[in-house]
Computed example of a mutant assay.
Amino acid sequence: MATNLTIRPIETKKDRKAFVDLPFRLYADDPNWVPPLKGEALGLITPEKNGWYSHAKVQLFLAEEAGKVVGRISAHIDTLALTMPAGQGFGPGVGQWGLMDAEREDVFVALIAAAESWLRAQGMTRALGPISQSIWEEPGLLVSGFDHPPTIMMGHAKPEYRGWIERAGYAVAKELMTYDLDIRKEFPPIVKRIIKSGENNPRIVVREVDKRKFEEEAAIILSILNDAWSDNWGFVPLTPPEIKDVGVKLKPIVFNDLIRIAEVDGRPVAFMITLPDLNEAIKPLNGNLLPFGWARLLWWLRKPKVRTMRVPLMGVVKELQSSRLASQLAFMMIDIIKRACVEHYGATRSEIGWILEDNQGMRSIAETIGSSVNKVYLIYQRTL
């Protein structure tokens, strides 16, 4: 270990900029890393710009050597996560770390030690990571699927990080995966029959959202989400400040025909959100909207033409989850949105997820329509 390596908590705006800038150097030669917009990355770690901080405690650390930043990490505690059932992954005494990058393993060892020390001082007894920073943002370490870029709001990492984390004494807590689907292909006959049956059922309506009623539609989706996902591992309810910030961030890539709400007897019971892969548009910008990046991005947002769509969220209310109707509604929404993706946006593939390894219902739906796992992420844990 280098004797002149120092780990310190960040204190200034300059430190935050250095925190954001480090990955641009470490991943400069990685063709599959997508440089985030620096303004967005700074907003993520700025309390005034991230609603998640309304229920979180955070300490960011920088590793420096000979005046050069060589690593970074975030230690954080989601106070809402502390109130969740322990059997669902979080619960009392569980802190997290994330936003981890380092030049070498000895740098990582020093960073994780600093993060763990801070968590212990806050009374935490177990650490989960990487979670960067909310479970709703970029959870997990990429361990499979390094050969193609991540989609919007999914993470990338260096392959060696897995060994560093495991040699530091961490064991796998949960596996997350995404599925790749060629949306130009027809669904299997059995799926078509299920969809047709649903289309002939007058009780079922699958409708577009109305972006003009953004807040009203978001409230409907949130209500279904918080019910549908409430028993899932790692679930933490979204709060009004987070919803507001997410709305501002995602509203430019929300399109009516890509988000659907399924109603049964006039009651909203399921939803599916699909987003054009913004990463395809921002990757060439190398993190900067100036001098001309903003104009290119605005032009793209007018009517995106993309190769890839991402399905980050879908859900069915709990009372229907064990019924045949749940999968029927899912297949109907997928089919309608799939056709819109191809016809209106020129897309050829979709990435579904992330999906928990033990979410057999969602995995079965993904596999039945012909998709296959393309990326795997791991969340690790360790007793402090």
Rank of each mutant, 00 (worst) to 15 (best):
I282C: 11
D245Y: 08
R307V: 10
S322W: 07
V264W: 08
H344F: 04
S327D: 04
E242T: 01
A295V: 15
G315L: 11
L297P: 00
K303P: 03
D257K: 01
R324N: 13
T274H: 14
T308K: 15
Q321C: 10
L258Y: 04
R324C: 09
D227K: 05
L285S: 09
L320I: 10
W299P: 00
D245W: 06
N288A: 12
T239K: 04
V246E: 08
F255W: 08
A270V: 06
K249F: 14
V311Y: 13
G315K: 05
I243W: 10
V306P: 00
L258T: 04
P312I: 05
I224T: 03
D245Q: 04
W233Y: 05
K305F: 15
I337V: 14
T274G: 03
A330C: 02
V316T: 09
L222V: 09
K318P: 11
F255R: 01
L298Q: 01
A281E: 04
W294V: 13
P304R: 12
W299A: 11
Q328V: 05
F235M: 06
L290I: 05
M272Y: 13
P237T: 09
T239V: 12
L275A: 06
Y345V: 00
E280C: 11
P291G: 08
K244G: 03
I334N: 04
R339N: 14
L278N: 02
A218M: 14
R339P: 01
P291A: 10
A262V: 11
W229T: 03
D277V: 13
N256H: 06
G247E: 08
A326M: 07
L225D: 12
V316R: 08
I243M: 12
A295C: 10
S223E: 14
K338E: 06
H344G: 05
A228V: 09
L225N: 13
L320N: 07
L238N: 02
G287H: 12
R310Q: 13
E217L: 07
L320F: 11
P237Q: 04
L238Q: 02
V311P: 00
A218H: 03
I273A: 14
C341Y: 05
E280F: 12
M314I: 08
N256E: 15
L290Q: 01
V269E: 11
A295T: 10
W233G: 00
N288V: 11
I337F: 04
D265R: 02
D265F: 08
V311D: 03
E319V: 13
R296L: 15
F255D: 03
K244H: 14
L325N: 02
L329N: 02
V269N: 06
W294S: 11
G287F: 15
K244Q: 12
V311Q: 08
R296N: 15
V246A: 07
Q321R: 12
W294Q: 12
P252C: 07
D257T: 01
E263T: 03
W233N: 00
L250S: 01
P237K: 03
D265E: 15
D245P: 00
G234M: 02
E263V: 01
G287W: 13
N286Q: 15
A218G: 05
W299S: 10
I273S: 09
